[in-house]
Amino acid sequence: MSDSRTSTDHAPYDALLLLSFGGPEAPEDVVPFLENVTRGRGIPKERLAEVGKHYFLFGGVSPINEQNRELLAALRKDFAEHGLDLPVYWGNRNWAPYLVDTLREIAADGHRRIAVLATSAYAGYSGCRQYRENLADALEQLAEEGLPELRVDKLRHFYNHPGFVRPMADATLAALAELPAPVRDRARLTFTTHSIPVAMADSSGAPDDPARDKPGGAYVAQHLDVARQIAEAVAAATGVADRPWELVYQSRSGAPHIPWLEPDICDHLEAVHQAGAPAVVMVPIGFVSDHMEVRYDLDTEAVAKAAELGLPVARAATVGADPRFTAAVRELVLERAATERGRTVERRALGALGPSHDRCATACCPNPRGPRPAAAQL
């Protein structure tokens, strides 16, 4: 078995695409951005302006694009320092640089076989299959333009890779240290992620995914597995073995009559305060960077709720451009490259669920509005 951590052979890939959600970078971008996000749902502009109010609190600028630029630079630096001669590009689903424009640039630069890292760590329609549908749409558009054919392969989910879990554990310890000493050892750990419709959560993952045998489907099971690992690492580091922890949700955006994953972070803070919790550390394991869902839903709304309750809180940082995460991306690229060449390599993963699959099954994380073409599947 070869070790992808020491290899520099990236064949058959000749480029890496960092694929993300995107966000507005000026007040006038907010409503057009939200129109992109909600296209096909018939939501009026007036409602989008209301939904976008948290962007306006930050000058109409989402932090996500700047954080993606930082990650892009960090990946290029890591690759260069480790002798990996592989160009790295960046494209977004909902804002510039748009995915189709980036793929057009990749084709113009002469690259044909592309590894893709989506900045979403977990299984699910919005976090995986929708990105693959976006890729299929963009490739179809390029074909209609007569451009050379590109092949894209999405890298496996990285939620349980050591390069994601260990930085999150360290960030949790750092957040604990911010709390007053008298409550530090009794503080709860509250792991947060984006809420999604219950039906979507139940259908997440591949039909043969071991996580599908657990309540809530792969999306919930994967988050619980990461939370458990971080809680165990914190217990080992602090010597507090019985610290309570739970997984809660944030950033719900759907119609009130459709069931979404609960409890919401603010409802949770109120409940644990009433139960006598002395302090809470919020750990956003569902997010790769401190973008708007973290800055507003946690740092603004949840912190305000905690202040109203008189409940001390701290928030752990996300992995961002942590060197261990950029090293993990390099490892995942080389692991997949070796696999495509028919080599057997170590596939590192922590926890109970093991490494995720390389290619998604056709029935994996189905589109709730009906079947659509998706790239990078069996």
Score class of each variant (00 low, 15 high):
Q250C: 06
H291S: 04
R188Y: 12
R47W: 00
I64H: 05
Y98R: 14
R188E: 13
V283I: 14
A307R: 15
A317L: 10
W90M: 01
D78Q: 13
F33T: 11
Y125N: 00
K45E: 15
P27A: 12
K305A: 08
P366I: 07
Y13G: 02
Y13K: 03
L189S: 02
A314P: 00
V272W: 08
T8Q: 13
A352K: 13
L71C: 04
G276M: 14
T38S: 15
S2N: 06
D3G: 06
G205F: 02
L224V: 03
A352Y: 02
L224K: 14
M282I: 15
L18Y: 08
C266R: 15
A375M: 04
H268P: 07
H273T: 15
A316W: 00
D14Y: 09
G370S: 07
A241D: 12
Y98I: 04
D267W: 09
L353M: 03
C364Q: 10
N92S: 11
L71E: 03
D29S: 08
H10I: 05
V88E: 06
L71D: 05
E25H: 05
P97D: 12
P180E: 11
D242N: 13
V116A: 07
A174N: 10
A317E: 13
F325G: 02
I196F: 05
A374N: 06
P180I: 09
Y55L: 07
A317P: 00
L75F: 02
R347F: 12
Y159C: 03
L34C: 12
A316Y: 02
D290E: 15
A302C: 08
I114E: 00
H111K: 13
H357P: 00
P87K: 09
R315Q: 08
P244N: 11
